[in-house]
Design a protein around this nucleic acid. Sequence first.
RNA 1: GUGGUAGUAGCUCAGUUGGUUAGAGCACCAGAUUGUGGUUCUGGGGGUCGGGGGUUCGAGUCCCCUCUUCCACCCCA
Length: 431
Amino acid sequence: MKILPVKGTRDFYPPQMTVRNFICDGWKAASLRSGFVEYDGPIFEHLQMYQIKSGDEIVEQLFHLTDRGGRELAIRPEITPTLARMVNQQVNALPRPIKWFSMPRLCRAERPQKGRLREFFQWNIDILGVEDVLADAEVIFCTLDYLRSAGLTSKDVIAKISSRKLLAALLLHLGIAADRLETLYPILDKKAKLPAEAFEEMLAKAVESSATVKTILELMAAHSADDILHIVPDVAANETAQTALDELQRVFGYLKAMGVAEYCRFDMSIVRGLAYYTGMVFEVHDVVGDLRAVCGGGRYDNLLKDFGGPALSATGMGMGDCVLEILLRERGLLTDETFKRKLDYFVACTDAALTSAALAIAARLRAGGASVELSYKTGNLGKQLKQADACGAMRCLIVGQEYQDGGKVVVKEMATGEQSLVSEEMLLNRL
RNA sequence: GUGGUAGUAGCUCAGUUGGUUAGAGCACCAGAUUGUGGUUCUGGGGGUCGGGGGUUCGAGUCCCCUCUUCCACCCCA
C-alpha cells in the first residue's frame, strides 16, 4: 500500500534541505550578530498553555493529543508560551537583558494555502526585561538585518511600524470605552485584508458614532505624527498619546542611527489581531503586496505575568520560512547555482590494486579538513570523472599508473581541465 | 470548517465521439568509451492512469464517493 505524506507537510530532499539550511543559517547568523543566544523547548506542551494566551478557539487550530496518563497535550503551534514558561522558571537566575532566539519547527492544524503549511519553521527573537524602546528598535533592526543579508532591499520589503499604546490612547481619546478596545483590534487589523467598503462596514458596526468611524478611518491612513495631530488636533494635550508618539519617534530615530531607516515606515493600520500587544507593533511585507506578511511582532509586557511569573516586559518577532522562501525565490535570491553542491576533491582510481592507496589519500585529505568523495568502482575513468562532475568536485585526483611508477597523483582542475602531477606530500601541504 | 481547481512515469505534460499491449521530453541506469567529465548516439528500467464503487461488450476518458494538490474564504499566535 502506498503511503502518502501528511497534508500540509514537506519532505526535505537534499536540494530542499539546502534551501532550508540556507534560510536557517541566515537566521542564526543574524541573531548572533545582534547578540541573541539560542534556546529551544519540547515539541509538545500542555494544551492549557496555549489556551492561556489564545483562548479555547485555539484548540481547533492545533494538533492535540491525550497521552496514556490522560494528559491533554498539544504540538507547539508557536514558541512564545514555551519561552514565557522557561523564563519564568528561572527568572531570578537569568542575566538581563534576556535576548533569546529560536528556530522551532511548529505545527498548526489549518488548511494549507500559499505561504502557509501545517508544519513550518519560525525564527523567533525576543528581548525580555527591557522596558525602553531601545529593545523594540533592536528587534526590528535584527529582523531587517537578516532580510538585508539575504539580499532583500527596501525595494523588496518594508517594515510597517505602529504602536498599540498610541492606538489605544487615540481610541480612548475619541471616546471609545476601554472594554471595547479588545474587540476593536481584530477589526482594525483587517484593514489591509478587506476591501475598503467591507472594512468600513465592519467598523461602523463596532463603533456607534459615525463621526468617530470617520476619524478612525482617517487615523488608519496616518503615516506621521503630523498626520495624527492634523486629524485629532486636541490630542496634543493627551499625555498618554504624547508619550506613545514620543516613544515611536525614538524607535524611528534609533532605526535611522542603525542604518535601516529606508526599510521602515510608520503605518497606523498595523494593529495585529492579538489582544496581548501593549506597545510597538510591526509587520514586514513585500513591497508588491501580493504575499501575506513575511513576519510580525511587537511588545507584550503582560505575557509573563499571565503565565504566573513576575511582571517582565518583553518584545519580539516571529518569521515563518514559507512566505520568506516564496519571496526569496521570486526575487531570484535562491538559484540553482547558489545551491550547487561543492566538494573539494573527488578521488578516482583506475586500478583495483590501488584502492587502498586511494582510500588512504582520501582519508588524509579528510583529516586535513577537505571534503572528499570517492568512487566505489575502479576502472572506467570517464565514468568516474562524470561522477566527479555530478558531485560538484572542484578537483579530481587520479590514482593510477603515475602513483605506481613514482608515488604521484594527477590533479585535474574540473573547471579548466588543467592537469598536473603532484606528490602526495605536496597535496597535503596545500590544505 | 466553506467554496472553486486539478490529479496519467521521479519531474513537466500528450492521450481523438468510450475501442488493440497508455506515450513524449527531461531525469535515472547501462553501452558506444577498461586513462579523461559537461556534448553526442544507442539501449534499458520505471505506471494499480490518486484510491474505491458504478454505467458499459469495453473506462485514463462517463457518473458517484473519497484522498491529495493548488487557489480563495474562516483564522492567522
